[in-house]
Amino acid sequence: MSDDPDLNAAYALQTPEDSRQLYARWAKTYDTTFASASGYVLHMQVASLFVLHGGTGPVLDVGAGTGLCGAALTAQGITPVDGTDISPEMLEVAGTKGIYRKLFTGDILKGLDIADATYAGATSSGTFTTGHVGPDALDEVIRVVRPGGRITLSINAQHFAAQGFAAKFALLEPDIQDLTLTDVPIYSPETTGVHARDIARVASWIKR
C-alpha cells in the first residue's frame, strides 16, 4: 500500500489488519482528503433510501468510519444512531461530531458484541466494497436487527457481481422481504478521475 492513504489503497486491502492499519493513518484527514475532495455522496444515498423505505431508529451504522452516514441519517431525523467500525481512530473522529448515541469498535467478520434483535434498523455505506467485506457478513447485520426492521446498505457494483451477493440474497430469501436493489452514483457529477463514475448497488430489505 502507498504511504499516503487513498481510494486505490483502500481497494487493495486484503485482510482486517490491513484495514485497521490503513484507516488508522487516514482517519484525521479522511473527510477532507477523500470525502470532500472527491465529491463522495454515497452516505447520503444510503441515508435517503433508508428513510424513503420507512426506516426508523434505533439504528446501527455498520462501518461508521468518521460518521458520514450517521450525519446524513440524523440530518433526516433518524435517531438514535449507534456506530461500529473496525478502526478506533475513525470512530474517534466520528465521536467529535455529536451524532452518535454510542460508538464501539467491532469486526463484522468476527461478530459484534451486540445481542440479537437489538436495533430497529441498520445501515452501511462504503463497507461492502472491494477489499473490505463480502456477502457472508450480511448474516451478522441481520442478526442484530429486530424482525420487521429495515436494513439498507451499499455494495460496490463490481464487488456485488464478483463476490456472489446475488446468490447470497437468494439464500436469505426465507429471512428477508421487500428486497430492493437500487444503483446509485458513489460520487457527485462534478467528480473527475478513474473512479468518478463508479456505481454502488444499495440493497434495502425488511427482516422477517
Rank of each mutant, 00 (worst) to 15 (best):
N156W: 11
F165R: 01
V81A: 04
Q76P: 04
I176C: 06
K102P: 00
L91Y: 03
G95S: 11
V194K: 14
W205I: 13
A94P: 13
D82V: 07
T118H: 05
T118D: 01
D85L: 05
A12W: 04
A166C: 00
T74N: 09
T180P: 08
I206Y: 14
D107K: 00
G57F: 06
G106D: 09
R197C: 08
V62T: 07
V93E: 13
S48D: 15
L91K: 03
L42H: 04
Y40Q: 11
T182K: 09
Q177H: 13
G65A: 08
D31W: 13
A9C: 12
K207S: 03
G65Q: 10
H53K: 15
D82R: 04
V144P: 05
F169I: 06
V81Q: 07
V41K: 13
G193E: 07
L138P: 00
G83N: 10
M1I: 07
H53Q: 15
R25C: 09
Q14L: 03
I114S: 05
A117T: 03
T29G: 06
A12T: 05
Y119I: 04
R150N: 06
M1E: 08
A117F: 06
H132I: 08
C69T: 12
D85T: 03
S2L: 10
S124R: 02
G126S: 06
V141Y: 04
H43F: 14
Y100M: 14
I99E: 15
M44D: 15
P80E: 04
P185I: 11
A117W: 01
P189G: 09
F169Y: 14
V141L: 15
K110W: 00
G77M: 10
T96S: 15
P147C: 02
G106C: 07
I186L: 08
L91G: 02
I142G: 01
A203H: 07
I151K: 00
Y119D: 00
G98F: 12
E89H: 06
A161Q: 10
I199E: 12
D116L: 10
S36V: 13
D116A: 13
A115R: 13
V81Y: 05
L171Y: 01
A203P: 06
E92S: 15
D82I: 05
G121K: 01
V51G: 07
I99S: 13
G134H: 09
S188V: 08
G111F: 12
K110E: 12
H159F: 11
L49Q: 15
A115Q: 14
T129E: 08
H53S: 12
L171W: 00
T192N: 09
I151N: 00
L172P: 02
Q177P: 01
G164R: 02
V46I: 08
G149R: 03
D107C: 01
